[in-house]
Amino acid sequence: MSAIARILTPTGATLVALVLVVIALWFGAAIGETSIPFDVVAKAVANRLWAAGYPIAAIDEGIVWSYRLSRAVVAACCGASLALSGLVLQSLLRNPLADPYIMGISAGASTGAVAVVLLGFGAGFLSLPLGAFLGAVLAFLLVSLLASRAGKGSAAIILAGVAGSQLFNALTSFIVTKSANAEQARGIMFWLLGNLSGVRWPDVWLCLPVTLLGLIVCLLHARSLDAFAFGTRSAASLGVSVGRVYCTSIAVSAVMTATLVSLVGSIGFVGLVVPHAARLLVGTRHNRLIPVATFGGAIFMILCDVLSRVLLKGQVLPIGVVTALIGAPVFAVLLLERRAKV
């Protein structure tokens, strides 16, 4: 157990992480191509929420409230959902490489969303988030079936996930190439790399409840996820309803991933790196691990969004590019540290 885990109780770890998320949101609303002082950010939020009446420039208040803060909240929800989904998949499958991106869930959600937009699947009855959810579920079912046929072991699961991910990425590219015009193709390909530019407060009211619901469900299953560390047979012998916990956790992960993919596109490395970093900080007990990984994912995504706006002057990088540029080296460091401890 790490020193931080020995010092902090689960409640203390949650409170510390929540405070850091609030600070990250503050930074996300203040920093950009045009920097806005932190006190102006606080006054703009107070004016909107409580009609405080602080005398600040209307353009600054508009940038903070209508653009940057809503974007930062969606980024936080995205990072929290992906990190939580990755943690759940790693715990259930007992595989440190499992995450929504590698397991094909993100790719399936992208295919479902693109099929609804360009092919009109559902004849108007399927919304974009629902199409993404169905694609995510289909991808996971296909990966699970392929893994079960390929044999037992974590290697089979990961290889099946890579195959499924490549298949659905190819389907997405095929649909875009066949059905989209040049402008649609450019917009969709940019969206698939991760794009927060178009999100506003209505998107917050979609993703925030999904993220909170997923966090609550996972916290309720924290002790069951602890039992999965010893395998499904051991979990069943400890009284865990393996089938129910497995189906519920996978469904929650699929819903969170699909909702966020439908809003911001497919983003990698968050669900892979953040859970491992959280384990290094607070250990493997899920009552501590779940809130720290969730809020850690939120902080990581907000900071990546800030970097996407300031790295290139006058341009906004796709956030998936930034997460990969940061996530890949961080994951390499975590692997080396893990090997050093073995």
Rank of each mutant, 00 (worst) to 15 (best):
P275D: 15
A5K: 02
A52F: 04
V270I: 13
K313N: 05
S266N: 14
L325S: 06
G135W: 13
L238E: 15
D226L: 07
A160H: 02
P329W: 14
P55D: 02
Y246F: 14
A324C: 01
L138E: 03
D39P: 15
R71C: 12
A293Y: 15
P209K: 09
T172I: 12
A83N: 12
L307V: 10
A147D: 04
G151H: 04
R285C: 01
L130K: 05
S154Q: 04
L92Q: 11
L192N: 13
K43E: 15
I56T: 02
N181M: 02
F230P: 02
A180W: 05
C207D: 13
V21T: 12
G62M: 05
G243P: 01
I102S: 12
L336W: 01
G62N: 12
N287W: 01
I299Q: 08
I102M: 11
W65D: 00
I157K: 01
L134Q: 02
G231Y: 07
L128A: 08
P55C: 00
G327W: 01
V114E: 08
L171R: 03
S249I: 04
G271P: 05
V242G: 08
L15W: 10
F300T: 15
L334E: 02
R48H: 15
G122T: 07
L69M: 06
L141D: 05
F300D: 13
S91R: 02
F300Q: 11
R279Q: 10
G198T: 15
V16K: 00
A107K: 07
F190Q: 02
H286G: 01
L225V: 08
V199M: 08
S266F: 09
F121M: 10
L263K: 14
T284S: 06
A109I: 08
L92T: 08
F228K: 06
Y67H: 04
A328P: 10
A227L: 12
V16R: 03
A24G: 10
A76K: 08
D60M: 01
P55I: 00
G120Y: 14
R94L: 04
S224A: 13
I175W: 14
F174A: 09
Q166L: 14
R68G: 03
A155M: 05
V217C: 15
M1H: 06
G32E: 05
L49Y: 05
L225P: 05
G265P: 11
K43R: 10
T323E: 10
L126Q: 09
D305T: 03
S173I: 08
P291I: 10
V19R: 03
T9V: 09
A113Q: 12
I31P: 07
I7W: 06
G28Q: 13
A98H: 09
S127Q: 09
S197M: 14
V40T: 15
A76M: 06
A52Y: 02
R338W: 14
L238D: 12
V242L: 04
A170W: 12
G120I: 15
L192V: 09
G12P: 00
G214W: 08
V217S: 06
E183A: 15
C77R: 03
V143P: 08
A185T: 07
G120T: 14
G283A: 07
F121H: 06
I59R: 07
V41T: 11
C77H: 06
C77I: 01
L130N: 08
I319L: 08
A251T: 13
Q315S: 14
R48L: 09
S237F: 08
Y67C: 03
K178P: 06
G62P: 01
Q184Y: 11
T177A: 15
V21G: 06
G327C: 01
